[in-house]
Design a protein around this nucleic acid. Sequence first.
DNA 1: GGCTGGAGCGC
DNA 2: CGTCGCCGAGGCGCTCCAGCC
Length: 644
Amino acid sequence: TLFRSKLCERIAYTKFVVRVDSPEKICVMKDQPGAPPLTVLALSFKMVLHPKTNQHEIAVVAGVLMPEVSSSTPVESGMIMHAASAPNFVAVRPVNHKPVPIGIQEQARTKTGGLELVPNEQALLNFVLAKVMKLDPDVILGHDLTGFGLDVFLNRLASCKTRDWSRIGRLIQRKDLNAMVKSKLGNHVPDALAGRLVLDTLVSAKELCPREKDYSIPALAESLLNRKLHPRTDALATPIAFEYEQTLNALLRECVQDAEISLQLSNTLSVLPLSRQLTSLSGNVWSKTLRGARAERIEFLLCHELALIKPKLLLPDKLSKYDRKALEAASNPGSAIVQTEEKAGRRKPQYAGGLVLEPKKGLYDRYVLQLDFNSLYPSIIQEYNICFTTMDVDAMKNKAEDEIELPEAGLAEGVLPRVLRRLVEQRRAVKAVMKKEQDAAKVKQLDIRQLAIKLTANSLYGCLGFENSRFFARPLAQLITLQGRETLQRTIDLARDSFNAEVIYGDTDSLFVYTGLEDMMKVRALGTELKREVNKRYKTLEIEIDAVYARMLLLKKKKYAAMKVASLNEPQNLVREVKGLDLVRHDWCGLSRMVSSFAVDQLLSKDLSADDAIGNVLTNLDFIANQVMTNQIALQQYIITRSL
DNA sequence: GGCTGGAGCGC
DNA sequence: CGTCGCCGAGGCGCTCCAGCC
């Protein structure tokens, strides 16, 4: 039944409300007309601290609107530039009861740059609510919205007792917002914004670019958008910046730029098309995919898969911590209840993980060959048909690792192997399209998509070992990592025994072989031969030549640096790769990283003997020490970043 | 000197 | 109209550091 919203009881701010008697009456349309375009509103805030309450208050809001965004195809970059050149609005209010500078007042009067001047925070909040109502965006987008911006916004809406606060979403909500934001239970942003998608580019970037280390706007703008930004202030501004036209103008520009950059990041990463595909893949709710809840995606993926198999199976209950404790207590009535301190951080490991070889430390100056298993854990699940449908997980619950046995050969393919096989097939298809694609931008987007499929496949294993997951099955996780360790060990033994190869290091799914060779053709031949010998032992498991290094400095487990041959056809073209060393860690200052980087460059230099390299390093150390003593190093170079 | 816990990496 | 639900979080391995006994 389709109601005009005004005629029925007010449920939503939308034009129409559709009410369905039963979920069974909902079906998927045949001949889908294609998804309607989305309206996207990028928001950005600047906060100040209230001097007495020490609470965040909102002082500036900027919005950039992008209408007619497709959720199926990536956005062309031209459209973003167009949207960015005209911010939809930027609003500012006086801070600490001091009027904003005359120049800013003048800008607001003449509406230059869409600037709006409002008398106080309450008015600012209402201004935003009115804008959101009018523009009615399907997607509200911004950087760190869920962790900061919208969170503070909701808190301010509550504190200022704003009328009809739920206009920020599409559902009319009369709940007491104050009670909502003050209850300790998690994040209320998505609930408050019911009916709109919340796209937090910080959350998305973390999921889609796991190798990135700095997820701040300037860092992401540089690495993903190739844009170097001017040094900027924090989202938390100082009140004094509101007293001068120049500093306030800079603040306003920054706020608009943050919204614009966030919009560009979302487009570059194709967050909307990608999250929509991921959602279709797992059959969960889109807004949850955007929240980055991987465990829930896997849960839905498996629930749908289980609904298809016959005979039908009961799904495992989803147990909360409380449920699990109650069950535990019921099964051991005599035992005392062990109070486990649940800390927010990482717990102690519950089972053994990957095998890490003790490295043969040193500087290697001839070719090193690196071989990697492709998607080791997903492959193992498929190779050995590991699944709760092929094994009696309950019976193994309290067994030691070496008592857990592999499923018998010849059983029908389990649910987990089948899901993974499908994911692998899809990823292969994406990669095939990528190879044919000429457009570099589209290649990048396809690359992100295949990465996302890979991440989904990899997090399946993670969810088996995750206590709060519906499909938590520690014995399976244990068996998978055990097979991983054995697979790597067998490969090392084979390399040593059949090829007389010197394995100098290996971590979980990789091994590094010192070839002692200087002829690339021979290195490739060895690699190919090793690969063939390993792969013929398995159906699904597959090892590949991951890299060849011309020089390698191996220091410790998970700490090494090497010159990687960029392309096997051009062995002269080398790229530095550094893992785990101080110079890749943010908890060391810039100066330290610089010195460390110089040392690594010297040691890995093709044209230098080790002695000469060491000599240069020592000279450089003296030079830098002198600069430090004579105060010639910028203070910036001494800053370390570390969370507490 | 051994132990523990936290941070931040690697996979 | 308010209450109820009380969730919301992928894994382990390793090094380095601080702090404690």
